[in-house]
Design a protein around this nucleic acid. Sequence first.
DNA 1: AGCATGATACGCT
DNA 2: GCGTATCATGCTT
Length: 212
Amino acid sequence: MRLMTRAELAVDPVDAAKILLGATLESDSPEGRVQVRIVEVEAYRGADDPASHCYRGQTPRNEVMFGPAGHLYVYFVYGMHFCANVVSLTDGVPGAVLVRAGEVVSGHDLAHRRRPASRSADDLARGPAKLTGVLGLHRHHNGVDLTDPASPVRLLAGDPVPPKSVRVGPRVGVAVAADTPWRFWIDGSPAVSAYRRGGKRGIVRDAPNLTR
DNA sequence: AGCATGATACGCT
DNA sequence: GCGTATCATGCTT
């Protein structure tokens, strides 16, 4: 398998999301190597996407989303979880793809050691924080270049996923723009996470015009 | 259906 | 500076 290139990922997050389905995230650590095939992603944009961490401009937390494509944006949420994103677009224009779920394809033992709570192989990376868990991703991985063979975390191109087997729906856990269908997953994968709507249920407001 | 658990960002003083 | 509402979640009941 070959490394993905920066140019492939320097596109609109919605397009980058579809490209990332079927790709493989590979992480090395002193403990060993784990590979996860990506089966579920969500696109996040910038100033025009109220659900994006970049909606209100650049901060120390989200600065890697403003940097070059193909880098890893790792953030900490809910006091105990990390989530991983692949930066898309190019310098200065923020955008990223949240990697929501995947199938462990190699390093199964290490993955299970990192997530003893998982009762089945399908559950090892079924969710964004579970996925960072099996890959051993932490705060210090924020900003690593996934297209650099020397990086501890890399992105490998996979076999193209037939468009017919790609499903589309609203993003999980977001309260605003809850009807914007920027979640993509591979139909039939047992590792796709469950949908749940974001916090402010009952409050329905029109999504801003997100179509370009 | 509820809780754990902490960083972030915004609105005030 | 400081208080607090909110959170791109996971696990247990």
